[in-house]
């Protein structure tokens, strides 16, 4: 419990900043929507003329930008990116920082087994991503309701947040695995961001070249299709299973590797 509280406190400032950025992003985005809505159908025609590469990078392919749910769908890409970066960095740093800050010699000479330390740290990180998810959910519902003149899309937002949450957990587990695997924090954070960006680039590449879609399983950004999640609220079982496998495997690797490794400072 003491380690958990310590980690929550250590990450307090960071989660506040992340939450505020998320709220800011949603607010600014919805302000733009009011402009789009006013412009009407012309906007969709304009975007249709854009090259599909640009559209997929901005996450606007297949969405009706003049409807509030279509517009809100754009956010999902940014939520995934932000949530993914937050989670993968948090996971990598929370594991590796004791050696970076050389506090490992303090912590691990205490009467604790390493598994307990990992559990406390992962729990703290998990609470952090839940907070970010809830902040995104609540601020989305509130801000959207200001601009929404039609039917409520709260249940669609909720579905997206569920998908976002799974992606956050995947990246958290990946980050933790990387943190336990690499020897120093610099390496672990650069490896973590490399993996995240590669996954993102791959998802864009798949949007551009449909022949690549057999690679979808490699990038969590492709596990949940915005239109599908928002439309029917359904997830593809194969990707849910894959998510579960990645999360379980990475968590197991984190425990196993960290238990066996030498602590160097």
């Amino acid at each position: 419990m003491n380690i958990l509280l310590r980690e929550l406190r250590a990450n307090l400032k960071s989660i506040i900043i992340w939450s505020l950025s998320m709220i800011f992003l949603i607010y600014v985005g919805m302000v733009k929507y009011s402009g789009f809505e006013a412009a009407g159908q012309g906007i969709n025609e304009l975007f249709d003329q854009m090259p599909s590469a640009i559209k997929s990078i901005f996450g606007i392919s297949g969405l009706d930008l003049t409807s509030i749910s279509g517009f809100y769908g754009i956010f999902f890409l940014y939520f995934m990116l932000l949530g993914g970066i937050h989670a993968v960095m948090l996971g990598a740093v929370i594991i590796a920082k004791e050696e970076r800050d050389k506090t490992a010699d303090f912590l691990f000479v205490k009467p604790v087994v390493r598994a307990r330390v990992i559990t406390a740290k992962l729990t703290a990180a998990f609470i952090n991503i839940v907070i970010l998810n809830i902040v995104t959910l609540v601020s989305s519902i509130l801000i959207v309701s200001i601009y929404n003149k039609g039917n409520s899309i709260s249940s669609q937002i909720l579905n997206l947040m569920l998908a976002l949450f799974i992606i956050q957990v995947i990246f958290l587990a990946l980050g933790a695995g990387i943190g336990a695997f690499t020897r120093n924090t610099k390496k672990s954070t650069s490896l973590a961001s490399t993996i995240l960006l590669s996954a993102f680039m791959l998802s864009v590449a798949i949007d551009l070249y449909k022949e690549l879609d057999f690679l979808e399983f490699l990038t969590p950004f492709k596990y949940f299709k915005t239109a599908q999640v928002m439309g029917s609220g359904s997830f593809e079982p194969i990707y849910l299973l894959l998510s579960l496998v990645i999360i379980t495997a990475c968590t197991a690797i984190t425990y196993l590797l960290y238990k066996k490794r030498d602590i160097h400072i």
Binding site: R6, A10, D101, K102, T103, D105, F106, V109, K110, P111, V112, V113, I265
Partner: peptide, 18 residues
């Protein structure tokens, strides 16, 4: 190790804390 470390006090040559 966990049980042993309950009764150990350790002072390293270089100290680093949060």
């Amino acid at each position: 190790g966990e049980e042993i470390r309950k009764e150990i006090g350790y002072l390293p040559s270089e100290v680093f804390y949060y």
